[in-house]
């Protein structure tokens, strides 16, 4: 029996889905599926993917900081500075 709190999965396979928004989508594409991201922190992944200018991060729809470790099935959103209104 797993005593860990259940983490809501957004992707049903052994991958991490990465979504880019705003100008980051122009640079990196809107979506990426990664097989080898499990166990890495978001910060490590940002360096690996050469992403600069990340302002807001979310995992499975909830805002997080860059020291969060990714799990298979996670959906990571990488967002540049926002500017609505």
């Amino acid at each position: 029996m797993n005593s860990q709190p259940e983490r809501k999965k957004m992707v049903n396979d052994e991958m991490v889905k990465v979504k880019f928004f705003g100008k980051l989508a122009d640079l990196h594409g809107t979506e990426l599926m990664l097989e080898n991201a499990k166990g890495k922190t978001i910060q490590e992944l940002l360096i690996e993917l050469n992403v600069e200018g990340a302002y807001m991060l979310a995992v499975n729809g909830a805002l997080v900081s860059s020291n969060v470790t990714l799990e298979d099935g996670d959906e990571l959103a990488i967002m540049p500075p926002v500017g609505g209104g």
Binding site: F21, K23, D26, A77, P80, V82, G83, G84, G85
Partner: peptide
């Protein structure tokens, strides 16, 4: 509310100019 929307809500603007350029704000 307006100040917070501009900083905290994940919405982005791309300006389309009459000379054909597109600029992310």
């Amino acid at each position: 509310i307006i100040d917070r929307i501009k900083k905290e809500v994940p919405i982005w603007k791309k300006e389309i100019l009459t000379d054909g350029r597109a600029v992310w704000l």
